[in-house]
Design a protein around this nucleic acid. Structure first.
Lengths: 202, 202
DNA sequence: ACCTGAACACCGTTCAAGT
DNA sequence: ACCTGAACACCGTTCAAGT
């Protein structure tokens, strides 16, 4: 019998970057950004701890790459939300979708807006995804504003709406509301209640 | 000449807990929660790296103690804000004060609501301070609601207002708005603009 | 072009021992 | 009651060397 000559994994992984990001996201969902350790990710993917540095500048580089993916998904979730209803009601649905995104992916949500991804705010890949998400928000704001041509008014409404849902999502995730009988699991009902002030954002 | 017999610092520090917290806050303001290292804090206070464990259960314990101080200051800032104007306008001032607190102490603000202080949400010392801050918010909400006796309505307004200012503060700190011409340094003007929808929170 | 192992300078945490 | 030093098991990051 010939000895096992074929190594289980070839020296070159082939799609290590992808594999690292996927493993990272698994850990992110379970233990949050602070639980993300480059060495552990490499270990679990079955590669040396130094290998990751051929695909990311450093730990923050990987965090930024994750953030880029997050904003991509957020944009698509927001667009899907807007499609659930016509006109102004579609804007409410976007808000509900925003909070739902945070509730479904708390680790990712915190990572996207956290200080470790701050370096990536300038990165063109991330910027493009962030801008895409923001454009969807602007379009939504345009549908509820009295003068859709007034860009300043549209941006003001968008800022209020973003602040409102971002704050609600953050407070829910950070467990600040459960002592007032508002549980994370009821995020959809709570979001609708908070957004009932919609025409009041104007 | 007698040799220096009096040690610079006695074996027992006396108020080590205080000293550690103060040094921690200095670092917190400069480098954020992630920059907080128990060993470095001890080193700078001039004490062994294990000494801190006689005053805090672990690193999260120190973070929670910092959070308790933070909520105390937030409550006093909010109260001071409310005193700046009578009636409903006082509620706006509270919102401005909330955002100003975040802008002045970004590291502290993030720590207070971040995942590392999550363990402390149950701690009675922190709870008392959080509840004190929340009570001030509720009182403010009561002044702008049409039916101050309707507790449900008051809490709903409070939640909207809190979400709005918390979201705005977070987005400003996390540098999500600077690309839209909204700089952290203009936090007061921006907060007033966003809060101009006050009577619309109802 | 991509991956490895050893090395370095940090951490958090524990614990027996000192004052 | 409070503090120390050594020890352990982790990190992130770098770099010469391997394939």
């Amino acid at each position: 019998m010939a000895k096992a000559r074929v190594p289980k994994r070839p020296y070159h992984h082939g799609k290590l970057r992808e594999a690292l990001l996927e493993e990272a996201e698994r850990i992110l969902n379970k233990r949050g950004v602070d639980g993300l350790a480059l060495r552990e990710i490499a270990r679990r993917v079955g590669v040396s701890h130094a290998a990751a540095y051929h695909h990311f500048e450093d730990r923050d580089g990987l965090v930024c790459a994750l953030a880029a993916r997050g904003f991509e998904r957020l944009a698509s979730d927001l667009a899907a939300g807007a499609r659930r209803a016509d006109g102004p009601a579609g804007f409410d649905e976007m808000g509900v979708a925003y909070v739902a995104f945070a509730a479904r992916r708390p680790g990712m949500f915190r990572l996207m807006f956290g200080p470790e991804a701050a370096a990536g705010r300038a990165d063109p890949e991330i910027r493009a995804n962030v801008d895409a998400a923001f454009s969807i928000l602007l379009e939504g704001a345009r549908t509820i504003v009295a003068t859709p041509g007034d860009d300043r008014a549209v941006r003001c409404v968008a800022l209020r709406a973003w602040s409102l849902v971002h704050g609600l999502a953050s407070l829910l995730l950070d467990d600040q509301l459960s002592h007032h009988g508002l549980a994370l699991r009821d995020h959809e009902r709570i979001a609708r209640e908070v957004l009932a002030a919609r025409r009041l954002l104007l």
